[in-house]
Nucleic acid binder design. Structure first.
Lengths: 202, 202, 202, 202
DNA sequence: GATGAATGAGCCTTCATTCAT
DNA sequence: GATGAATGAAGGCTCATTCAT
């Protein structure tokens, strides 16, 4: 039993519950996006969700679990996207798969970039969460699988680097106010492929 | 006149002042490193610095200005390092310069990685600061200058990407608990050079 | 019309009602015993009773009335026990009656001592309740009757003192972790009889 | 390091501090006396003390520590009183000493009976505190010393009983609205002496 | 009658900042 | 200049109670 559980308090059964829970997460996401962590306080979230503070605590045992739920949701989407690409890969070459993955990722992260950034920052302040960590691992594992097929050495580290390159570039691009996902995607493609090329050569 | 000035209240002239100011920054850095932003509160900083809370506010108009000062200090060091490399470059080729810059950067960021990460996260929550933004620009400008010499297109964007790749990889490496700066450096070299290679080719 | 009625909302007639009501009281007693007043909240009680919070409020108009019911139940048992002893007294001497009453009382209070203590403390925080006060009076009256038969002066005060001596000793014994009801009973007998002896002598 | 420390946060050094701290304790005592634990909340205490809530938390780490301080103060007074009597005892007989102790105790507890009752109840809900427990032990030890001098068997238990008899009778008397400390004292004397008589006889 | 989602007043506590000494 | 006591807005969270379904 962790001190500050990140999991939601209860899964909403009734229809009304589902709505309340969603409204809370939506409100939280909106605030995080617009005002950052500073503006994220439980009363504010509840008010914006059109829900009483008591209801909020019915579904989330504490503030951090709300952030946790948002992170989890995002990561689930990401994981699903990657799996989709992976399964659709078929005979495609490494380059093609990389491009597809990069595209998928940008397509998801570039819809609400400020939110994604805020979530990424917020996660660092959260206590360790097995569940969350595991989801990250699974995304990495997927990439490891792809890399391994191409006989790339130390695929774990490479997978991490590849993800890290994307993270860094997306973050910087968002900070700089870029809005053209395609252009950014092209650059990320080049960066990742360029990095992989130096490895294959070796 | 910004609402929350990030600049220190006064440039400490006297020796005692200088010492007090340093003690505060040192304490703040230590806390940030060990406990993250959560543990960083002005009373805590003052106590750890062996200074009264009143004195703290003599040197820093508010909490954010302390973080601002830490960020500024780090960036000044970084800038100085980059300039040093730049000036020592002489006839060196692009690859050599890149390697030198990456090495310099890792050498600086890998000494207190947790602090660097915390500062990076903290900056995002700080209000815009012209001064700070300018310093980042100057680092980028330096790289732009290097790139331009090699006739690289859109050097501003490339400079940003190059920095971003390094940022991302360092962050991920630290998160993963890596401690071998040289090994990481080699990978960052490859990533950056790989990226640049795809550009030059075009 | 008191602000916070201590009486149950309705006398449960049907069988199911009776069961629900009992389950609630049982759950409340268990919580009070194990966690003290701190752990006693209506939601907790309802959950432990396997009853919805709505049902709980069907039978008890408010939280205090649950405590009130527990106190009443305990006092009813006590009163019944005392009456029983009183009626069985017959030709017995004062000493014998006292011993019997003390024994009866310990037999009842020592079964769930923590609960009894908690109830006693809780009662002090409850608003005055005519009904409850009356029940205490009736226990006292019984003792007064016994004492009067032995021509003891100011029997009301003496009755109160006799009860108080028992209360105090039981409480202290429980606090100290005593578990031997017989041993405690012997001491209470001596204390009460010793006290009465000083009165009769006078 | 206990979860909820009962000791005050810091000993007030400056004169102003001392005043603030006293004002808080005084206010808390007043509230406890008049409204019981129900009315005792930190904001209320601070307001009544004419002090900001922040100041309150400068001296007391949490609500419970305020109650703890009140209990400690009362017990210190009691202990001092008992020691005083003990030292003044000289050649006095057991009876005389008992009378003096009972008198001393009533003199202290009957000045603010409601407060004393409330504190007694409150203590039961507080987490264990070594310091507090020790003080109680020391009072008992004093009585044990007296009893031992008169070759009374199992003096620890007897001491506890003697104190318990007093506790119970005072509590009941206060509940019943008695105000004549002398009259009550006479009865407590008789109860305690009566109890001791039954032991000596044996 | 039963259910349990919803409510919101109110409590405990923190911490950036001020200001009298 | 230095000190640290004092301030109070603000935030996290609980729990008695209501009411729509």
């Amino acid at each position: 039993m962790p001190k500050t559980p990140l999991a939601p308090r209860k899964a909403p059964r009734q229809d009304r519950s589902r709505k309340t829970c969603d409204a809370i997460l939506k409100a939280a996401a909106g605030i995080l996006e617009r005002e950052g962590q500073t503006g994220l306080n439980t009363n504010h979230v509840a008010r914006k969700a059109g829900v009483s503070i008591g209801s909020l605590y019915q579904y989330f045992p504490n503030k951090q679990s709300i952030i946790g739920a948002l992170i989890r949701a995002r990561r689930e989407t990401l994981l699903a996207g990657m799996e989709e690409v992976f399964e659709a890969a078929g005979e495609a070459g490494l380059e093609e798969i990389v491009r597809a993955m990069v595209a998928k990722r940008l397509q998801q992260d570039f819809r609400r970039p400020a939110l994604v950034q805020a979530l990424q920052r917020a996660e660092a302040e959260l206590p360790e969460d097995k569940d969350l960590r595991q989801m990250r691992t699974r995304v990495e594992a997927l990439i490891v699988a792809v890399l391994a097929e191409y006989y790339i050495d130390d695929p774990e580290t490479v997978a991490r680097d590849v993800l890290a390159i994307g993270d860094g570039m997306v973050r910087a691009a968002v900070d700089a106010g870029e809005t053209d996902a395609a252009a950014l995607g092209a650059r990320v493609d080049r960066a990742v492929l360029g990095y992989l090329a130096t490895i294959v050569e070796d």
